[in-house]
Amino acid sequence: MTKPHGVHIARLLPWTGSDGKPCFLLTDGDGYLTRVADHVESVQLGMAGELLDHIDDLLADLRATPDQLRYGLARMSESLRDVKRIADSRGARLSGAAADGD
Score class of each variant (00 low, 15 high):
Asp57Asn: 12
Leu58Arg: 02
Leu58Asp: 02
Leu58Ala: 03
Leu59His: 07
Leu59Glu: 14
Leu59Met: 12
Leu59Asn: 11
Ala60Arg: 10
Ala60Ile: 03
Ala60Gly: 14
Asp61Asn: 15
Leu62His: 12
Arg63Trp: 02
Arg63Tyr: 05
Arg63Ile: 00
Arg63Ser: 15
Ala64Ser: 15
Thr65Asn: 09
Thr65Leu: 10
Thr65Met: 10
Thr65Phe: 09
Thr65Ala: 07
Pro66Phe: 04
Asp67Glu: 15
Gln68Val: 05
Gln68Ser: 06
Gln68Leu: 03
Leu69Gln: 03
Leu69Asn: 04
Arg70Lys: 15
Arg70Gln: 13
Tyr71Ala: 14
Tyr71Cys: 04
Gly72Ala: 11
Gly72Phe: 09
Gly72Cys: 07
Ala74Ser: 14
Ala74Asp: 14
Arg75Phe: 04
Arg75Cys: 09
Arg75Gln: 15
Met76Leu: 15
Met76Ser: 09
Met76Asn: 04
Ser77Tyr: 03
Ser77Asp: 12
Ser77Cys: 03
Glu78Gln: 11
Leu80Trp: 07
Arg81Asp: 15
Asp82Tyr: 05
Val83His: 04
Val83Cys: 07
Ala87Lys: 12
Asp88Pro: 00
Asp88Gln: 15
Asp88Glu: 15
Ser89Tyr: 00
Ser89Asn: 01
Arg90Trp: 01
Arg90Val: 01
Gly91Leu: 03
Ala92Pro: 00
Arg93Tyr: 02
Leu94His: 11
Leu94Ala: 14
Leu94Lys: 06
Leu94Ser: 08
Ser95Cys: 05
Ser95Asn: 06
Gly96Arg: 10
Ala97Gly: 05
